[in-house]
Amino acid sequence: MADTPNSPVVDAQLRRASVQERLGALEVEQARLRQELVSLSGELRLPGLYLTLDAAGTSALLVADAVQEVVRLVELEPLPGAPPHVAGTFIYRGSPAVAVDLAVLLGVTREPALDAHLVICKGARPVAVLVDRVRDLVEAPVLVEGTPDGDVALPWDGTGLMAGLCRTPEGIRPLLRISAVLVGSEET
């Protein structure tokens, strides 16, 4: 039976797309408001814990609340017709999951090392972010304005993945917008 325009399957897909679009808009607005607060007060500490991820020769932060689990890289089954950043699928706790390669989203094509990690994100269906390494947890990083070295562009700039920049004990790190990665997984 084909899905008709008013079928429950189509309605659920439309609602999911609408919720994801609204979530993305909220993240953009939240990032804009954080930057405005930084410009008004000079320093804003983000509450909570943030995971430090390495991908494509650079590091970024991801809010720990968005993470369900971190696992070692498993064999990924290619997904025919998927966009280049979709590394493949795998079975996670009995359910099919999609792996999105963060390095490819940043424009770097490479074969992941055997010690790479999959960061399983919380959500309605399992989606993993393939990263070179998960390094550590950072508590309450400071949101900052601008770029790390003034005019030096980051590979994250212009990707839609960056929600802002944070100062950590190791230096300035981009804050990853997880909804941008999750929406990218929906293109499969």
Rank of each mutant, 00 (worst) to 15 (best):
L73A: 10
A116W: 05
G158H: 07
E77D: 11
L14C: 03
G158L: 06
A180C: 01
E36D: 07
T89L: 08
V104I: 06
A25V: 09
M162T: 12
L23C: 01
C121G: 00
L130N: 02
I172S: 05
E77Q: 14
A12D: 04
L61Y: 09
T147D: 01
I120P: 01
E170V: 15
L62T: 03
G123H: 12
T109G: 02
H117P: 00
G48K: 15
E27W: 08
L182F: 08
I91C: 01
A87M: 06
D101Y: 13
T159M: 06
P80E: 14
V100N: 03
R34Y: 05
Q30T: 04
V67D: 06
A12F: 08
A140C: 14
V152N: 08
R16L: 13
R15P: 00
L161C: 13
G158D: 07
R34F: 06
E69A: 09
L182N: 04
G107A: 07
Q68V: 01
R45Q: 11
V28L: 12
L26C: 07
L154F: 12
E77H: 12
T4F: 15
K122R: 15
D136A: 04
L161N: 10
T188A: 09
L143F: 14
I120D: 02
P96T: 04
T58P: 00
G88V: 12
A87D: 01
P8E: 12
Q30E: 04
L175C: 07
D101S: 12
A116H: 04
T52D: 13
S41V: 15
R22P: 00
P84L: 10
R15K: 06
G24F: 08
S95K: 14
A60V: 14
L182S: 03
A163T: 04
T168A: 11
Q20G: 01
A103F: 14
R72M: 08
G94L: 15
V119D: 06
L40R: 13
V9F: 07
